[in-house]
Amino acid sequence: MKLQRKDVLGLEEMDVEEIRQILQTAKVMKGILMRPIKKLPTLKGKSVVNLFYEASTRTRTSFEMAAKVLGADTTSIAVAQSSVSKGESLYDTAKTIQAMRADLVILRHSSSGSASFLADILDAGVINAGDGQHEHPTQALLDIFTMEEKLGDLEGKNVVIVGDVLHSRVARSNVWGLRKLGVNVTLVGPPTLAPAEMGGLGVKLTHDLDSVLPGADVVMALRLQLERQKSGLFPSLREYSHLYGLTSERLKKTGKQSVVMHPGPMNRGVEISDEVADSAQALIERQVTNGVAIRMALIYLLIGGSANVVA
């Protein structure tokens, strides 16, 4: 069964059945990924374009691998994003890609809404690989997939997301997805990085990490953009780490063997200590593996046609 949509732009617009279908398909995809010979002819003759306006090694590689395992041809376009006025506009680039008859475009762009913008122009499908501070649906899906693998049904589970939630597309997508699955989500960060307007996401918002750790099944640390300190959003890494860094000492407060996650790349010693990052609690490498499976599932479900090859 294909998804009844052309694009995957965000989890806010996705319904829970679609999310479940993607997670189900990703399970099968992970099985294929774990085979010694991982190559399928399913998407032979289909072309997938990776259009990346922001530097990203892990996400781009993950998409590329996913497409290749399924047999698609991939092309990567890395656009150094300078000023808006220079270079070809996204509109014209989209028209060019359209003319080349790509089947699927993976877009990473620094502007919120750019993926929807591209999807409106293209006949081809679009997968949002991160648009500004808006959404990063494949990251959230792989996070959810990883949580389910470890914890089973997520309904009623407690997930704490800590860090720079204001600027985080990962946090936004996770909130939409997790809420739809009945998870209790709490966003945590200093008032400058977790301000009141984030209450618009409809989840609990707090500035005190230690007070919300008891009972947490998952603690997810977000990557702190170190340049935010220069903008005055927090005074020092030292104080940030003291208040919000995940240490094994702090994690004991959950009162259970909680799962620790991080979308990477990590700032070790800032949002997460070495000890935690390398502990058995941390599922960070598993997240990366599952990322390929999730992306395989999405690519398959969008352009895989009716052939039920993976069943």
């Binding site: 919120s112 809404g113 500004g132 501070q133 204001l166 307007e197 618009g200």
Partner: peptide, 13 residues
């Protein structure tokens, strides 16, 4: 305008 809508969409407020 900074507010719930900007927070939701990830547009700088």
């Amino acid at each position: 305008r900074r507010g719930r809508a900007s927070g939701r969409m990830g547009l700088k407020g």
